[in-house]
Design a protein around this nucleic acid. Structure first.
Lengths: 214, 214
DNA sequence: CAAAAAGTAGGGGACTTCCCCTATATGGAA
DNA sequence: TTCCATATAGGGGAAGTCCCCTACTTTTTG
């Protein structure tokens, strides 16, 4: 049995995936997460073989950041990105964060099953319109060695800042004090060499932070 | 028993919905469709009370067109649009094609049940971030080519706000006083029925106010 | 033409953010 | 083990934002 963790913020889609995948005897759904942080937690607790990861997650962490963290602390877990974005930059990012699979949401169950089984067996399974040649290029090149300057916590902050949350709102959301939020903001601006909020937002847009916001 | 027809191209989601809805004794799933044309056929054959309609359907006919056809030939059938798009344009379009309900895929089962029951009873049930004021405006104005509620100047402001400019920066940029900027912001929030900056930003992104920014 | 909407601007007070510090606990790397 | 990075939190003051008003043009519309 392949132990699978489902990560998607849409309850209905999670439930649908569960029903679908549980009809295959090889698969056992061991848990569901609706946020990135919860996914990281559950990946540690439940030790799934495969994580089925949506990209757009609410509350700070997106699917890429969550995948990155899971792979760092638990390198045997395989991750399949499940998304509707059929874009080069996303596939590339999936590879850099260590996902072994990438499959589009309009695929049918058999393909999803195939993806899960293949990555479980240690193979890679990228089903997109991006050509194999390009994917192989990325896999060969050291796409992995491009660490972001920002820490996990700082990335969460960036996301919330870009989405227009005030310091107070972020503090409440992240269960920290306003002072800590201020510190993080200062550090982020310094690290990125920016000196205004709109520069930060344009930076975030260029680096595709917004695509995952919804 | 409310007779329901499910329309969604994703097999997994259809199956999940069936399981979910059949747990309620008021509901009976009388059929499933995976394309718009099939939905029109089945709506005639099976005479459901409510059609649960996804928007993105393959093979030509989308959920809106299918809904329109169903309503034309069978005006007693109520339609609930089920989608992940929380965007003004879609809600507006749903109203124009005669759908009595609009509900997001990240909603929970209870809300979906409520939506089905309400529209079955002849009420309208639109569960989106679009404000009630705007929806009522559309319902009154026959909703055809409803222009955005915001004025030109206000749209300019929205764009700068979303891009993270401060009041002072906007005032300088637009050659008006900070007080005027504050007034515009207040008016914008009121018109859209929002009460926080991050709601405004998410609204703007969803409604593609930012197209000029990229 | 009269009325409404759009765009402008201000007062004043409460609240928030920003910017300069300092400080502590923790965990990992040299 | 010592040191650095991360994450946390606070003081204090200046600056900015928000929210309640009012008020004046100009343009649009009934």
């Amino acid at each position: 049995m392949i132990r699978v963790l489902l990560v998607d913020d849409h309850t209905m889609i999670r439930k649908g995936l569960r029903v679908l995948l549980e009809s295959y005897s090889q698969i056992k759904i061991v848990g569901e997460s609706h946020t990135g942080n919860d996914a990281i937690l559950k990946a540690n607790q439940l030790e799934p073989d495969v994580v089925l990861m949506d990209l757009s997650l609410p509350n700070g962490l997106d699917g890429f950041s969550a995948s990155n963290e899971i792979r760092k602390s638990n390198p045997f877990v395989k991750i399949v990105i499940l998304t509707m974005h059929d874009e080069e930059i996303f596939v590339q990012k999936a590879i850099t964060v260590g996902a072994h699979g990438y499959i589009l949401k309009n695929s049918h169950g058999e393909l999803l099953l195939q993806a899960i089984v293949e990555v479980y067996r240690g193979k890679r399974f990228y089903k997109t319109s991006v050509s194999e040649e390009i994917i192989n290029l990325w896999l060969k090149s050291d796409a992995k060695t491009m660490p972001s300057v920002l820490t996990l916590r700082e990335k969460e902050l960036v996301r919330l800042i870009v989405l227009g949350y005030t310091n107070k709102e972020m503090a409440d959301k992240l269960l920290i004090s306003v002072k800590t939020v201020e510190n993080h903001k200062t550090n982020i601006m310094q690290k990125l060499g920016l000196d205004s909020k709109h520069q930060l937002i344009q930076y975030a847009i260029k680096n595709r932070y917004l695509d995952l916001a919804f």
